[in-house]
Design a protein around this nucleic acid. Structure first.
Lengths: 193, 193
DNA sequence: ATTTATATGAACCGATCAGTTCATTTATTC
DNA sequence: GAATAAATGAACTGATCGGTTCATATAAAT
């Protein structure tokens, strides 16, 4: 079995759902957008929800790998990488097709706390937290969990602000706030990054 | 004209949309939930979208007034009120029916930047920013716009984290971060709040 | 009591929803 | 070239979507 059609469907559905939303995008719209027949779609996925879950899995993989790769490229030390998170954010915001965080939007459309889509969206945030915490630990932060949570609050806030469009450069605001928080996270006497 | 039915509809629709989402809540569901006939609904609002806009106007009024009142009650000085923002946030999160920010969710479902629902949701955030900035100015912050934006990034991030359920007490994390940012916002020599 | 405005129920509209059925076609593989 | 598997198009299901029509009923105001 060459799963190319299935993968192609998930890849294209990711784009369409990301731009158009989940409820607002019907399966027939996916047929038009992908050129894949509805029969084939429902042979690979027994429901729209399962397709959405597959899309979210791919998004998590792509997005998290990209974050890890770019922070590694932009920062030499773990502490620099923590700060570089917000430069990566700025790169993302600058993409012409930027439409906010797919997981925030997914959990906004599927609100019930134990809905599979909601649960899986939260899992992405936990995995990202694990990465940021590992950087904080490697950097020698006094309270790595705490600083990781705080930095990620800034990140989520910036994503929301950018997506809603009421702020011009939230990544820059988040970065300057992060710099202050980081300067406190290694003890009062620690040197700057 | 006694506009009681219209107001009653908007008040009830606010609850149902907030709990169930916009696309996922049909007009017939509102008929069941409110007991108001569909004929009457479309006599007051020419479309579902207009009803949603009226709901968002009410939400903005209620929510912003509540924030202003509670911060005033919890903090004596403007600077205390800036910090109290995050105690108000914690109160909100503790409400049993908490379901995140209605405006974040609305702009997640209506993504096009110039869609009326998206535009009006962003306007709510701007109005809230104006209030926080006025507190920062009254408190004598060096860069009131900057600190207001930073504090609001923490607020939005905390709302998202709480709604998605991947963090237990994001309001507390946001508050401790806010304390650090505030301590820098009045100059290196300024006393703590 | 009569006018005027507001609200009602229920049937109805065409469009779209997620999902199914089925006969046919296109590739792979041996 | 026969067998096997994957994909197709198109029609179809029943439910629901936002929104309309219309005749009736319920008020309040004069």
């Amino acid at each position: 079995m060459r799963p190319s059609k299935r993968d192609e469907l998930v890849r294209e559905a990711l784009k369409v759902f990301y731009q158009g939303g989940f409820h607002a995008t019907g399966m027939d719209a996916l047929v038009v957008a992908t050129g894949i027949s509805k029969t084939t779609m429902f042979k690979h996925f027994s429901s729209k929800e399962e397709l959405i879950l597959a899309v979210l899995r791919l998004r998590d993989e792509n997005f998290r790998n990209w974050i890890i790769r770019r922070t590694s490229e932009l920062g030499r030390t773990p502490r620099e990488q923590l700060l570089a998170l917000f430069d990566v954010l700025a790169e993302w915001f600058a993409e012409p097709d930027f439409r906010g965080c797919m997981f925030i939007k997914a959990s906004a459309e599927y609100q019930e706390p134990d809905h599979p889509v909601h649960v899986q969206s939260a899992e992405h945030k936990r995995l990202l937290f694990n990465y940021v915490r590992s950087l904080a630990i490697a950097a020698g932060a006094l309270k790595p969990d705490s600083i990781a949570r705080q930095l990620l609050l800034l990140k989520e806030g910036a994503i929301v602000a950018k997506h809603m469009g009421y702020e011009d450069d939230p990544a820059s605001d988040a970065k300057s706030a992060a710099r202050i928080l980081l300067s406190q996270a290694f003890g009062p006497q620690a040197a700057a990054a």
